[in-house]
Design a protein around this nucleic acid. Structure first.
Lengths: 332, 332
DNA sequence: CTGTTAGCGCTTTCAG
DNA sequence: CTGAAAGCGCTAACAG
């Protein structure tokens, strides 16, 4: 990691026998210079292999065009990150949105001093799925760094963009209800990230409103292991569910396989809706209905708000209804 | 995205009635100051909400502790990125390695002017899977930015770390051969990224050495669609294969399901080895043998080399042999 | 049309 | 023990 002795602006100036400001103007296309001078300077710069120092320009410019992405809970936990299409899409969406605007995304660590980012030259921070009373949020606000999260934060003062998780979960439950389910097992996460708390509350109140029992199994960690174990657990219960709604991401094909291995048929014995962004869901047999929170669009909206200061269209969750939650019709 | 009027070092100095250098020393714990002064300065800084400007410090320091990650082909193509655990793990591994060393990763766009990164204050760039004669590589070298790739580059002058793809593919083929396969269908990619070219060549020469036909089907794009179509295609051929080796990442559970749907049993009718990083492979029925190129470790090694200038232990590909490529033993 | 000069905000000798 | 001043590399008024 050794840099060669840098060629600076002034070196070019000396070589081209002009002043530094002339070099700057020539290279940036600003000011009014004679074409000959401009070309002479460019030639000298090329010959010397001059490359402006980005840090110096940024100091001058007063901004960095760098946005931090704080993926709460995930970056330091490879097992989670890896098994989460949600996360992958969120990062991809954020990167695309940033690049389109001439910005770039800096991946921030999760488990570190809360003020780690203060040393990084950022124009703003996007906090994805902050945990309850996330200290990072407070720190950023205190430090005066523009910050956006994709859920409303406890303090309520932070601008945010995102889906209405409560409505989405209710929508999925209602869909299952209308397909005939009366004993729905919900597999939820134990994380303190807001989505998990919201979704569990949504299930509870939705059930209460219909005088149905709220059957909620919580998994300790996201990922296939816990989710598949939970699916197995509910199916082996004395009174098995007539529908399963997973709110924690897992491999959809594996969920289908697990249910089949236990001798149940989808959708005849049990209806299935999975919260997931995994595109494989459309290709299983039967195809699995999914609840998607559109992480890529959400991230895009967050970055747009951060950079442009404008809200775009609101992002709405999508319930994609496929065979796994559709009772076979009369044509059967 | 409006910053408040910044509190600068000099503002603190005025408030604490000391000079700027004293403030700097007090806040950074350098120099020898009386405890009273130090405390007075700290108090003033806290009161004013002072936060040093990272850009200014970096200009002074001469480095940025920022490493660019150029994911060639992928960042702008969400469909690919999303379906690739390989990529997710690579990014996660790079981020972890960087964070551990006090650095952070900047996500660089794929489809953009080749000199996009020249405006970003980077200490180095990690180019993941450069395409053939990747222009970015040349540009970085020309610009004097330290750069590492995870495959040997055409010019041969670039430091790199990574697995021996050729040996790994041969290892997988030999494993299938020893399990009895004599008509192996290989599903490979059409990308110009080095891995794809290397792996195809490896298959061809491996086959030639054994006087076996080289049956290679190339998919246009990575992702489930093309790979599953290719699996279907080879299984429906007049003389179906006795083994399938996929070199392009796809959902392993879906591959298994596709084979089953076509009425073949794994491993009895057809042996299966998949190149993938998907942890779900261990949980399908039967469990799928995988060839892993360990993207997280590779990325870690690349970042280590970039930052520390030292090579760690070489990364070796891992052939994880599971039921899908193990002929049922005599206990059956 | 081009050069001089004053910063951007911080750190660090080097005097006092 | 503390302050003055130089300078990191670049840009942009403002003179000439």
């Amino acid at each position: 990691m050794n840099h060669l002795p840098r060629v600076r602006l002034v070196d070019v100036a000396v070589a081209a026998e002009v002043s530094t400001s002339t070099v700057s103007a020539a290279l940036n296309g600003t000011g009014r210079l004679s074409d000959t001078t401009r070309e002479r300077v460019r030639e000298a710069a090329r010959r010397l292999g001059y490359r402006p120092d980005p840090t110096a320009r940024l100091l001058r410019a007063g901004h960095t065009r760098l946005i931090g992405l704080a993926a709460r809970e995930y970056v330091e936990s490879p097992w989670v990150y890896v098994e989460h299409a949600y996360f992958t899409q969120l990062v991809t969406g954020a990167a695309r949105a940033a690049h389109r605007r001439g910005y770039a995304i800096v991946l921030l660590p999760t488990l570190s001093r809360d003020d780690y980012w203060l040393d990084i030259p950022l124009d703003g921070i996007y906090i994805a799925d902050p945990v309850a009373d996330d200290p990072v949020v407070g720190n950023c606000v205190a430090a005066g760094i523009p910050v956006i999260a994709n859920v409303p934060h406890a303090e309520g003062l932070l601008p945010w963009v995102g889906c209405d998780h409560d409505a989405a979960v209710r929508h999925a439950l209602t869909h299952l209800y209308e397909a005939g389910a009366r004993n729905i097992a919900v597999i939820a996460g134990e994380s303190t990230a807001l989505f998990h708390r919201t979704s569990v509350r949504a299930c509870e109140s939705w059930s209460a409103e219909r005088d149905l029992p709220a059957w909620i199994v919580r998994t300790r960690e996201p990922g296939n292991r816990d989710v598949l174990a939970a699916v197995e657990q509910v199916l082996c219960a004395p009174r098995p569910p007539d529908a399963i709604l997973t709110l924690v991401e897992a491999s959809t094909p594996l969920v289908v396989e697990t249910i089949r291995r236990l001798g149940r048929s989808i959708p005849d014995d049990v209806l299935l809706v999975c919260t997931t962004e995994d595109p494989a869901s459309a290709r299983t047999d039967p195809a699995v209905s999914t609840l998607s929170f559109r992480p890529a669009q959400t991230a895009e909206a967050a970055i747009a708000l951060l950079i442009d200061g404008r809200r775009g269209e609101p992002v709405t969750a999508e319930l994609h209804i496929r065979a796994s939650s559709t009772r076979p019709g009369p044509q059967r």
